[in-house]
């Protein structure tokens, strides 16, 4: 069946992240000057303004910083998923990533719950990083 939900819009900043996802790797920029691991991707470090950067692969482990549970499908393609959980996951390396919590009833999700990444291969081009209880 054709995938009918929104897909990421690629740009020069975000492309390395989504290419990494296709290989089931969570890639983030790390500032070579101050060491900040940052998200979203940007050409300069928001902390020290350095352009000197490398990409690192994150462990995929983190905890739920916050979450919401949808009982309404603002976009029809999500109707079959109701109720579904959208969360901000705080990764071990620091970045906060918007994602879904899967393989877990919305009633069982809580803030600070440990989670790990799993990969949802939605199209030929895209794998989405989602998280499940660790």
């Amino acid at each position: 069946m054709e995938y009918n939900k929104p897909l990421p819009k690629l740009n020069a900043d975000s492309k390395p992240f989504w290419s990494g996802c296709r290989e089931h790797e969570l890639r983030f920029q790390k500032c070579n000057k101050c060491g900040l691991i940052r998200w979203p991707p940007s050409i300069i470090c928001p902390k020290c303004h350095s352009r000197d950067v490398q990409w690192i692969v994150a462990s995929g482990r983190g905890k739920v910083y916050s979450f919401v549970v949808y009982h309404i499908a603002y976009q029809p393609a999500f109707k079959d998923d109701l109720p579904y959980t959208v969360a901000i996951v705080e990764l071990e390396e620091g970045p906060h990533l918007l994602t879904n919590i899967v393989n877990c009833s919305p009633d069982d999700v809580s803030c600070d719950m440990p989670v790990k990444v799993m990969w949802d291969d939605v199209t030929e081009e895209f794998s989405l990083p989602k998280f499940e209880p660790a």
Binding site: P6, P8, V68, V86
Partner: peptide
């Protein structure tokens, strides 16, 4: 919300609900 919609995050309630949940914690 840009790419937030990829994960089904839409509308104004989404962000405030996220903040409210963290506040509840």
């Amino acid at each position: 919300g840009g790419d937030d919609g990829v994960f089904g995050q839409f509308g104004a309630a989404s962000g405030y609900a996220m903040a409210a949940r963290r506040a509840m914690h």
